[in-house]
């Protein structure tokens, strides 16, 4: 049994012995440590910020529409002038 184990070990190590030519020149950032994972797309903070941005956008748009409505008659008055 011991002999069989030893034989298996020899076969295994033979199987793992490399041969042939493995050559090349590379470089740059060869084999670097993996980059840090990107930050989560929506952290609690960014989600809150995102909602606040949306509200702000909505308010700005509302104000813009309001101003537009107010300015329309005067434009009409100007355009209707001879």
């Amino acid at each position: 049994m011991k002999y069989l184990n030893a034989l298996a070990l020899v076969l295994l190590s033979f199987n793992f012995a490399a041969s042939g030519q493995h050559t090349g020149i590379g470089g740059g950032n060869a084999f670097p440590s993996p980059p840090p994972p990107p930050p989560p797309r929506f952290s609690t903070h960014s989600l809150v910020q995102h909602i606040l941005d949306l509200i702000e956008e909505d308010e700005t748009e509302g104000e813009a529409k309001h101003e537009e409505k107010q300015s329309t008659p005067s434009e009409e008055t100007e355009s209707s002038a001879p």
């Binding site: 490399a18 493995h22 090349g24 470089g27 084999f31």
Partner: peptide
């Protein structure tokens, strides 16, 4: 003296026990 190239070649040579 050339760590980036050394890293690549070293990985290749040691990886294949060449």
């Amino acid at each position: 003296h050339f760590p980036s190239v050394g890293s690549w070649v070293g990985k290749l040579v040691h990886g294949y026990d060449a």
